[in-house]
Design a protein around this nucleic acid. Structure first.
Length: 554
DNA sequence: GCCGTTTTCGGCCCGACTGTTTTCAGTCG
């Protein structure tokens, strides 16, 4: 499956063209091509060359480049751009406060092509007097560099999980392999991972390791022994295949899953953990119930007397945060509802952006009322999926909402979230959000801390205060199942402990993105959530009843 | 660079904020 690699190629071209100051529409065309390939349902290498252009978003230039990349592994156009613009410029683009124009200016006028060089130049006062770079701007850039440094460079779960699954499926097909399972941080559902792990059992271990080493994602072999192979994989991440000894599957899986702190505690309780054929027996020997992988973080799991009934994918009855092409989604309402029904959902919320998000073609009251007609039409054709007429309403700087109460009260379901003024101080940001939480029409606060893993730090906000307010006003909080994973596990656990309902939603902007629910589910499980803690485990009628709850008023 | 159609070129996602260039360019979502 080369889709991700081709998409990455197009994104790189777009990034570099941006720095080159090329036509923004041309750049957008490359971004759309990346998106089209990334979300294409079949492996792009299986699409006949002549049919590439039929994919919406690919035209003559981009389908040629796709063919060139698939045939040779490289694209001359991109190589040429790379010669002209050093790699470090892309890193500079990630600094908050720096865009293509300033990066280009720094490179052209000062020869700066890395974050380190920029930092040094600012520190040495070499940029004073550079046109457009006043004191405040420089301070902002310095702050941006600091924030960039704080972002984790780990692979976000949303990327790690599909890769881990793909490798597991490939290994499972290798002749002689009896069993393969994902282990390590991915199995524990960590939000981002330093390394990938699998455990395999095979009649002939010697056949599995070469198959692993020859996977297309393997960049470099770091170590091979009788019982494991450690490599570096293409996104720059370490990956280990562990070979379980005959009769020792459970122990091998347990050790490869971790966490280190959890395993250490097990060792302290019983030094002999080597030869268990399944994990349940291993835990029984420790006089413990089976502990699900997501619990194994030494955050109280050893005190459990019975196995918690952690929420499962089959408990989820619908997605309560998803977009359509009325704002910035790519699919029609009908397509989204069809996809929701295909997932077996009982309900699906249409929550497009509100007008403040002009770039996303956000809806005002008039367009929301027009949208209602389309929802009604689709609803008539899908009686088994209740379509909730909703909105993702912007929370404005002062905590008021982007739409009037009148229209909000017409809707079945109101999601509120922050998309602007991320730099408020903690007290103001918290007060702003609590005002939204207390609003009588608001049902859910989406992505409460605003972070995007690996790309944007959370804004300053007192999550404990948000949880307290959510509890007081009977407002639900979201686990956003995307690259955001927001709330994160420990915040979701705070919410659960305060009996605040959590909704696990994908924030899907396409039908395929509805499939991301699983990573939010893993986060909820890491927060020890059971079905009763999750709003969208409620069957249809119960959810509709909950929506009629009287919200507390201060 | 892609798309759609008023079929081959014009339109494509817009508005607020910020700092500085004091009249607007750059960045962000």
């Amino acid at each position: 499956m080369q889709n991700a690699a081709v998409a990455e190629m197009f994104d790189s071209i777009a990034d570099l063209l941006e720095i080159a100051g090329e036509n923004p529409f041309q750049i957008r065309a490359y971004r759309r091509a990346a998106e089209a390939v990334a979300t294409h349902a079949t492996p792009i290498e299986d699409v006949p060359a002549a049919e590439l252009r039929a994919i919406s978003g690919l035209g003559p230039a981009t389908s040629d480049k796709t063919r060139e990349f698939l045939a040779t592994g490289r694209v001359a156009f991109l190589e040429k751009l790379r010669e002209e613009y050093p790699r470090g410029l892309l890193e500079l683009m990630r600094v908050p406060g720096l865009g293509p124009k300033r990066v280009q200016q720094l490179y052209r006028e000062r020869g700066i092509s890395s974050v380190e060089a920029l930092q040094e130049s600012i520190a040495n006062g070499e940029l004073t007097g550079l046109a457009g770079f006043g004191g405040k701007t420089l301070a902002k850039i310095e702050d941006g560099i600091k924030r960039l440094g704080e972002l984790s460079s780990n692979l976000p779960l949303i990327d790690a999980l599909p890769l881990a699954n793909l490798v597991a499926r490939t290994l499972a097909d290798v002749e002689g392999v009896e069993r393969v399972e994902i282990a390590g941080e991915v199995r524990r559902g960590c939000e981002s991972v330093e390394s990938l792990d699998w455990v395999a059992q095979a009649g002939d271990a010697k056949a599995v390791i070469p198959a692993f080493l020859s996977l297309p994602f393997v960049q470099e072999v770091l170590e091979t022994t009788e019982s494991r192979a450690r490599v570096r994989m293409r996104p720059g991440i370490e990956a280990t295949l562990h070979i379980a000894p005959s009769g020792g599957w459970g122990s091998a899986l347990f050790f490869a899953t971790g966490s280190p702190a959890h395993v250490e505690e097990a060792r302290n309780r019983n030094a002999e953990l080597e030869n268990y054929s399944d994990e349940t027996e291993l835990y029984a020997a420790l006089q413990m119930p089976f502990l699900d992988p997501e619990l194994r973080e030494k955050t109280g799991e050893w005190d459990l007397k019975v196995r918690p009934n952690l929420v499962r994918i089959s408990d989820i009855k619908g997605d309560l945060h998803a977009h359509s092409n009325w704002s910035d989604g790519s699919a029609t309402i009908r397509q989204m509802v069809e996809a929701a029904r295909a997932r077996g959902y009982q309900y699906h919320a249409i929550t497009d952006h509100s007008k403040a998000l002009a770039m996303a073609n956000g809806l005002n009251a008039q367009r929301l009322r027009e949208q209602a007609k389309e929802i009604a039409e689709v609803q008539a054709d899908f009686p088994d999926v209740k379509i909730l007429r909703g909105i993702e309403c912007d929370i404005l700087r002062d905590g008021s909402l982007d739409l009037d109460d009148e229209i909000l009260h017409e809707l079945d379901w109101v999601v509120a979230s922050v998309h602007s003024a991320f730099n408020l101080d903690e007290a103001s940001q918290t007060a702003r959000m609590i005002r939204a939480i207390s609003h009588p029409a608001v049902d859910l606060i989406a992505h409460p801390t605003g972070r995007i893993l690996g790309a944007r730090a959370p804004y300053a906000v007192d999550v404990a205060a948000l949880v307290e307010a959510a509890s007081e006003f009977d407002t639900a909080l979201e686990i956003n199942a995307s690259q955001r994973l927001d709330l994160k596990d420990e915040h979701a656990r705070m919410a659960r402990d305060a009996n605040v309902l959590i909704s696990i939603d994908t924030d899907a902007h396409s039908t395929r993105m509805l499939n991301n629910l699983e990573i939010g589910l893993l986060t909820a499980r890491r927060a020890w959530c059971e079905p009763k803690d999750i709003l969208n485990t409620k069957p249809r009628e119960e959810l509709l009843a909950w929506l009629k709850r009287p919200k507390s008023q201060k």
